[in-house]
Computed example of a mutant assay.
Amino acid sequence: MNAEFMQAFEQLGREKGIAPEILFDAIEAALISAYKRNFGSAQNVRVSLERTTGEIHVYARKNVVQDVSDTRLELSLSEAKAIDPRYELDDVVELEVTPKNFGRIAAQTAKQVVVQRIREAERGMIYEEFSNRESDIVTGIVQRIEQKNVFIDLGKAEAILAPSEQIPDETYKHGDRLKSYIVEVKKTTKGPQILVSRTHPGLLKRLFELEVPEIHDGVVEIKSVAREPGLRSKIAVYSRDETVDPVGSCVGHKGMRVQTIVNELKGEKIDIVKWNADPAKYIANALSPAKVVSVEVQETEKMSRVVVPDYQLSLAIGKEGQNARLAAKLTGWKIDIKSESQVTQSPAFSPSAALEELV
């Protein structure tokens, strides 16, 4: 290999973010394998690659012993002293054994090593980039669907949307543009494996951060998110500035901000409620759009009893208990919902009583 060849390797390594010394060390290791493979030698050899000129030297390394049992690996003391009188038993003697036509083999081997290292470096950089973006949102294009797994092109890499992370009844086709949430990035021999989700609560949170400047700026804070993907979600927000309405900020002018997110989630309904440090007020807000008459809380049990007007009972519970279930997830409290007429019949509040209306 000539000097220009070596300079090209060094420049390419720098461009791809690989230290030249690492590249050269890898080439030397590969040349040892190439020598043994092409010249059928079981010798213990060392390859020296001159960094500036590209000259290659192969040295057979032999141990100095009293009685030689394998000439490929050992050298007698008398033979060693004939080379250099300073050699003693157990020293290692290096003898140059560079084949005449080794340059062509070396060039091809070096090329293969460089290509392989560049691929590894690029995969490493992609892994670092996306591993730092776990719990972030990415936009990609659906490339293909295999065994219900959706493969999404992210530009530099490909992400996998597994069936368990897909919104129920949502359909995907080639060319669709999708936003998804990075759940995990794994390092594999074939490069980084990026697992994304459309059902994770974090997706909803990130979408609001993208759409609502007040959240991005830190004026409005998302306190909690509860989702039943594809059906309905609740999000609790709080404003650090008393002059800023957190719910209004998220809804936007004529509902445009929240509608953009609803469209991205293919029609998933979103309730935006105001967070409150008072558990009773927070629970009442979380049951929106239902109107609440009163809330009793049992702090030690984290249980609450909510009273609603008779005509609001079905709305508070929701279809198949959905509204109450989401409110419980959002607040972290168990919620027992009663109508005013039910309370009149059994007014006592028993935290240990079965939660009839809420799972």
Rank of each mutant, 00 (worst) to 15 (best):
L210H: 14
A236S: 04
M256N: 15
R232L: 00
R257L: 14
S233P: 00
P246K: 03
L265F: 10
K274T: 10
V212Y: 05
K205D: 01
E228D: 13
F208Q: 08
R227P: 08
E228S: 05
S197L: 05
V262W: 09
H216N: 15
K269H: 10
V220Y: 11
H253F: 14
R240S: 09
P229M: 11
V225C: 02
H200K: 05
H216R: 15
R232Q: 05
V225Y: 08
G248H: 05
E209T: 14
A236V: 04
L203C: 03
S197P: 03
V219A: 03
E228T: 09
S239A: 04
I261D: 13
E242M: 06
P192T: 03
P229F: 12
E264V: 07
I194R: 03
S197Q: 01
K223T: 09
P213C: 10
L207I: 09
L204R: 01
V251Q: 12
K269S: 09
V196K: 07
K254H: 13
R257K: 15
K266L: 13
S249E: 00
L195D: 12
H216W: 15
V258H: 13
I235K: 03
D245G: 05
R240W: 12
E211L: 14
R232F: 03
D217N: 15
V251M: 13
Q193N: 09
H216Y: 15
K254R: 14
I222E: 01
A226Q: 04
V262R: 11
M256L: 14
G202Y: 01
G255C: 06
E264I: 10
I270A: 07
N263M: 14
E221M: 03
K266H: 15
L210N: 15
M256I: 13
L203D: 02
G252V: 08
V212C: 05
V251N: 13
V237N: 02
Y238P: 09
R240T: 13
I194G: 08
V251A: 12
K269D: 05
K205L: 07
E221S: 05
V251S: 12
E268N: 07
S224Y: 02
E209S: 14
P229N: 10
L204H: 00
P229V: 11
L203F: 10
S197K: 06
L265R: 08
V244F: 01
K205C: 05
E268W: 01
K234V: 01
V244S: 01
